[in-house]
């Protein structure tokens, strides 16, 4: 079975305070520490777990990004991914979710995957639109918010996280599956894994290799335009309940208001 994981390099959410460029209205990515999206680490772990359960399978990490994204791919390889494919091209700068999905789908088209794993959303842009775009371009069914994934015969079966619990959902392979955040504990690359990562196949492609017209991607092909950016409203102060003998009732009322009781 061929399992593909779409991954992204992002500003390190643990050390970088995200800043938006007021002119381009985009996230500032230069001059900051960049890492493999921690959400993708968990998605990669889900893929590796499935690979090791199913047997006779491989996990391939796929990404689109600048040359610096090689580091994120090496980390994916160190974690236990079998090979990696990165598309780098100057014409990709400024791509929106549609453009990104188009490029990732073009790679996957050539690879004939059985399963394509994506995190539900990236930890920087949070659009959550790329997985759906990939499924659409490839004309594949999409299962979303998976917290557990199994393969039986030619079917993918997932437990899909809902507000109140989970649904069991299945679809025929090949399929795109998005992983619910926090469902799989990220595995650490072992020291051996890090040292053997550089010996694993790592393919770097350009738009020409994928026969994509540059006008369909990057700034030129973007259909999504950020109109304005602004500061999020400061969180309102919490409500303090003083215990005058009725605090238990006050807490119960509060919880009921939010349908938590």
């Amino acid at each position: 079975m061929k399992i593909y994981v779409c991954v992204k390099q992002i500003p390190d959410p643990n050390t970088v305070v995200s800043k938006l460029d007021p002119n381009t209205k985009r996230l500032v990515r230069s001059g900051v520490s960049l890492v493999l999206d921690p959400g993708d680490e968990s998605t990669i772990s889900a893929a590796i777990k499935l690979r090791d359960t199913v047997g006779n399978s491989e996990v391939v990490a796929v990404s689109m990004g600048p040359a610096s994204a090689q580091e994120a791919m090496r980390r994916a390889l160190a974690m236990g991914v079998d090979r990696a494919i990165l598309v780098t091209d100057p014409a990709l700068a400024g791509s929106d979710a549609l453009g990104t999905a188009r490029v990732l789908a073009a790679i996957l088209q050539k690879e004939s995957p059985d399963l394509v794993f994506c995190s539900t959303e990236s930890t920087d842009g949070y659009t959550g639109m790329v997985p759906g775009g990939i499924a659409e371009f490839l004309n594949l069914p999409q299962l979303t918010f998976a917290r557990e994934i199994n393969v039986e015969g030619a079917k993918a079966i997932i437990k899909r996280v809902t507000l109140t619990g989970y649904q069991t959902v299945e679809c025929p392979l090949p399929a795109v599956v998005t992983i619910a955040s926090g469902s799989f504990e990220a595995i650490y690359p072992t020291m051996k894994g890090i040292m053997s990562a550089k010996k694993k196949p790592f393919t770097q492609l350009t738009l020409a290799d994928l026969a994509i017209d540059p006008s369909q991607v990057g700034e030129a092909g973007a259909r999504e335009h950020v109109a304005t950016i602004g500061k999020a409203e400061a969180r309102a102060a919490g409500q303090i309940i003083k215990d005058d003998g009725n605090s238990a009732q006050a807490i119960a009322d509060f919880l009921q208001r939010y349908q938590l009781l």
């Binding site: 650490y188 890090i194 990562a197 550089k198």
Partner: peptide, 14 residues
């Protein structure tokens, strides 16, 4: 070398 830098970074993260 690059591997060693990655290993130290990984231990730091751990």
């Amino acid at each position: 070398d690059a591997d060693k830098q990655l290993i130290i970074a990984e231990v730091r993260r751990f």
